[in-house]
Nucleic acid binder design. Structure first.
Lengths: 151, 151
DNA sequence: GTAATTTCTAAACCTAACTTGAGCTCAAGC
DNA sequence: GCTTGAGCTCAAGTTAGGTTTAGAAATTAC
C-alpha cells in the first residue's frame, strides 16, 4: 500500500522492482536521503521512485554509483531529474554509449584484420595494442602469440 | 633471460606483460599446466606465451576465465591454439562481439526514442524493458520514472 | 662463497554492487 | 494482547579477477 504521507521502503521496492536491501545500499551511497518516522523507519518522497528509476537507467548505460550520485547532485538543489534535466543528462548518456560502441567496433575491425593477416605470425598484434590495456607502461609493442622479433 | 629448457614464471611475465601473480592465478583456474623443476619452481612451455596471449585477447572480447578455459580445452589434446584453431575460435569471438554491439545499439535507439517521446510521462519505459534486466521475474512491465497506470 | 633476486605457498585483501543472516524493534490485524 | 510481517543495524558473504603480504627456499650474479 501507498502510505498517504511518506513511502515505506517496501512500497518503494515494489514500485521500482528493486530489492529492499538495494535501496538501503543506495541510501548508504548517498543516492537517496529519506527521513525517519517516529519509530525510526525510513520514509521516502514520491519523487524517489523517479530518482531510483533514473539510477537504474543510468546503470544500464554503464555509469557507476558514484558517477550517478554526481549526476544527481549536479542538479539544482539536488532535485530529482525533471524532463528538462533528463534531456540534458541523456546527452551524456549518449556520448558514453557512443564511446563504448566505438571501442567495440574498433575491436571488431582489428579482429577482422587479424583473421585475414594471419596474426599468429605477426611480431606485434593489433588486437592487443588496441583498446584499454594499451599504453599501460610505455614498454613498446608486445609480442604476442609466442612470436618475438628474434625468433 | 630465457632458460634453455622450461621458461620461468618471471620470464613468461616479462614476455606477456602479465603479472607473475596473474599467471599463477590462471594456473589455479586451469588455464595452464606448468611442470615443476627439482626445486619445486614452475617451468612453462614456450607455447604457453601463445596460450597466455590467447587468454588476454579472449578477455578483451568479454569472455570470462571459465569460458576461456572451455575454449582451450575444446582443442584436441588441450593444445595451444594453432593458426587454424584461431580462425575457428575467432568466429565465436566475432559473434560474441556482434551481440554486444547490437545490445548497445538497441539501447542507443531506445534512448533516442525516449528523449523524443518524453519518457518521463510514459506509463512504461522502453529504456528499462530493453536489455538484460528484462524478463527477470515475469512480473510484467515496470512503471518507471514515478508514473503508474493509476496515476 | 656470499649476496641479491626470484620463486614458493597460503591466506588475506581489493573493488563494485549488492545479498544474507542474526538479533531486535515496530506496526497492523483480530 | 498476541502473532505475524515489515523494518532496523551491523557484519560478513558473494562474484570476478586478480594483488599483497609474510616467511621460507631456490636460483642467479658476482
Amino acid at each position: 500500500m501507498a502510505p498517504s504521507h511518506g513511502l515505506s521502503i517496501g512500497y518503494l521496492a515494489e514500485r521500482t522492482g528493486l530489492a529492499v536491501s538495494a535501496i538501503r545500499y543506495y541510501e548508504a551511497q548517498g543516492l537517496l536521503e529519506p527521513w525517519r518516522n517516529a519509530g525510526g523507519q525510513r520514509r521516502f518522497h514520491r519523487a524517489d521512485i523517479r530518482r531510483l528509476s533514473f539510477v537504474m537507467i543510468a546503470q544500464k548505460f554503464g555509469f557507476t554509483l558514484p558517477e550517478i550520485r554526481e549526476q544527481l547532485s549536479s542538479l539544482p538543489g539536488n532535485r530529482t531529474p525533471t524532463k528538462a534535466d533528463w534531456a540534458r543528462l541523456s546527452e551524456g548518456f549518449r556520448r558514453h554509449l557512443d564511446a563504448r560502441i566505438a571501442t567495440l567496433e574498433k575491436l571488431r575491425d582489428d579482429l577482422d584484420g587479424c583473421i585475414g593477416c594471419g596474426c599468429l605470425s605477426l611480431p606485434s598484434c593489433a588486437l592487443y595494442n588496441a583498446g584499454d590495456r594499451a599504453a599501460k607502461k610505455g614498454q613498446g609493442p608486445r609480442y604476442l602469440m609466442g612470436d618475438s622479433p628474434d625468433t
